[in-house]
Write a protein that binds this DNA or RNA. Structure first.
Lengths: 217, 217
DNA sequence: CCCGGTTTTCGCCTTATAATCGAAAACGTG
DNA sequence: CACGTTTTCGATTATAAGGCGAAAACCGGG
């Protein structure tokens, strides 16, 4: 999240194929690392990895002709950085809004689309928001963040209650000073769960409540 | 689904490493195919691929030591076969209940666990059930299928209405003859959507209804 | 120091969807 | 033709999400 829009880190390729075009950070897998260790290592050369709040596998992209002149299979990841950090990036990299990408190398635009879809889906049924939010935030700030990432406006009132009913939100007790034009000072909140991804406290088609237990047929 | 339990096709390895142990079907990726084409080709040697109702990427397993004596990265898939087909399988393969696996080669048990979790999650918020169900089925049969796959009992009444409200279920007009002990004949249903996966008609934190449109901040 | 403007917060109400319960329908059997 | 069985359906309850407006808490300016 930069300047209220969802952005992605791109890197200008130096070598052929697709030299000078924008591509996602990445590189070859070494023999002594798994794919997640590899992407963290690749990323470390571009940006401070300690800023990464969340990393998860996305999908494998393996069309035989996705990279001209050689068979390359890509294992794509989704990685998130909180909106309050502004990492230094090298000269040959830049942030681009996901909705306004430049010409990208290979199938990297498709990968970004897939990542965007995954983020949208998980924002609404997990606590993945913690990976984009700062340690403390106001409900308004969180609303702006969710709105930008989801692509539609969400109501602050509802957002607060949905998240707190699920036990994902917790008031810190502090308040944020009001803006230049006045207004009531906003209470500060944080995500519970210590930065862990709370996967599914959710299930449509739930197990029966008054469980008579026993067999499952 | 075989004999009212969720089962997985395993293949007894002929060669080292891990010779004679049970493993998931698979093999090496060729230069002219993507990973999905590859798994379909590998599977064609074991079972009639036309029986496959659904195939989706699961995850990459890439720990450096997951296969002794050589670096192998696995792209795992989830594939589903309707419960009414009983495919012929070769001598060296067998079906095992996912909850009662034999000793498996490599990390294949972890892969099965991951697949089971994915199936459970998607059953409740997509129409993935069509991939396990026969073309026509009674609500009771569908209930048994869901119960076995989810691991807990679901109510037939509720299942029917949840699925039909989402527009996933459709009566065929036919009825099934009652069982040996009598009872009212059951109406037959089918899934709508022609075997396509209806992904997310679902989103907690929805877009506003009476959209005032406009900006998204 | 009062007053309008601004932003946040909170309670109440409406809507949407899922779960539960029980009665009625439709069948075989003795 | 009564009885047990299984399915089906309507009515009711429970739970969660969305909407709205009033009150709270701050600013700045007359």
């Amino acid at each position: 999240m930069r300047r209220e829009s969802l952005q992605v880190l791109l890197w200008r390729r130096a070598q052929e194929p697709h030299a000078h075009r924008w591509s996602l950070p990445g590189g070859r897998l070494r023999d002594d690392e798994d794919v997640e260790a590899s992407i963290r290592r690749q990323l470390a050369e571009k940006v401070d990895v300690r800023k990464l709040a969340h990393v998860e596998q996305l999908a494998v992209f393996s069309a035989p002709d996705r990279v001209p002149g050689g068979r390359i299979v890509a294992s794509a990841f989704l990685g998130l950085i909180p909106c309050d950090v502004d990492p230094e990036v090298p000269e040959d990299t830049a942030w681009y809004p996901v909705d306004d990408l430049p010409d990208t190398a290979f199938d990297h635009e498709a990968i970004v689309r897939r990542a965007q879809g995954r983020l949208r889906a998980k924002l609404s049924y997990t606590n993945l928001g913690f990976a984009l939010a700062p340690p403390e935030f106001t409900i308004s700030a969180l609303r702006g963040l969710y709105s930008a990432a989801l692509g539609y406006r969400v109501a602050a009132t509802n957002l607060q209650r949905v998240l707190s009913r699920r036990g994902l939100l917790e008031p810190t007790g502090h308040t944020s000073p009001p803006g230049p034009s006045g207004g009531r000072p906003a209470a500060l909140f944080r995500f519970t769960g210590h930065g862990m991804l709370v996967t599914d406290p959710f299930a449509v088609l739930r197990p029966p409540s008054r469980g008579s237990g026993g067999d499952v047929r």
